[in-house]
Design a protein around this nucleic acid. Sequence first.
DNA 1: TTCCAACCTGGAGTGCGCTCCAGGTCAACC
DNA 2: GGTTGACCTGGAGCGCACTCCAGGTTGGAA
Lengths: 126, 126
Amino acid sequence: MTGYAPAEAARRSGFSLDTLRYYEKIGLLADVSRTSGGQRIFTDDDLGWLVLFRCLRDTGMPIAQMCRYAQLAREGEHTADERRELLKRHAVRVEEQMRLLQRQYDHLREKIRFYEQLPGSGSESG
Amino acid sequence: MTGYAPAEAARRSGFSLDTLRYYEKIGLLADVSRTSGGQRIFTDDDLGWLVLFRCLRDTGMPIAQMCRYAQLAREGEHTADERRELLKRHAVRVEEQMRLLQRQYDHLREKIRFYEQLPGSGSESG
DNA sequence: TTCCAACCTGGAGTGCGCTCCAGGTCAACC
DNA sequence: GGTTGACCTGGAGCGCACTCCAGGTTGGAA
């Protein structure tokens, strides 16, 4: 079992050191092992969790919900259904988010095209 | 020139009344006209701006940057190039955001598929 | 063994974008 | 003229997700 120093875990996960400590403090990341002197050692398993958290954060899941998910996972196998449903509901929200983003991106492109077609006078709104 | 009461402008723009007042306070929305008694009347032009702000907010532009854009627009025609470039740079960031979102969405779907294929034991990370 | 960069803790502070509040005013209708 | 609901102001407060800090400890290299 490879172990990673805090700085290395931060580098690999893309979270800052402070964020890793924060995630542990709020109970999102649990049972991070330590040296005899008290310094953290992150395992590949911890890194796996961090990759998941990165995915969920990037797709806009609130931290409270990630905590719920992590808590369920800690409770064991029998929560697998609930975890799956949690992820599926999140996926639906992400799909909506993607559609909205695409739609507003199209508006933005149209606005830009307007600027590019127009070497003369502009509209008032924008 | 049609005028809209604050509540109607809020409804049409999707921003709350407080947000409309806030946008005016920070100078994002300027020169909103008033009744003799001091109550706001939003014009179609104001609404046009609000639609643009909605687009920019939904695509993640910080308010400070929207203020910059609005300021440029107020300065007149000669800032059109700069405004266009501002929007184009933003569009690039939105494209990156869309790619990231798609990528993380794919990870999420994969995770869900994992749960669905698996009526037995699960992995540690997630 | 000494050094010093990396690490530790608890807790305060930050930035963003609103959101809420108290206390008062306006205006449309009865 | 009275009522009532929408509106006004300045300013405080909030929720989120970190981020920073002071003051102290650890541990690997020279």
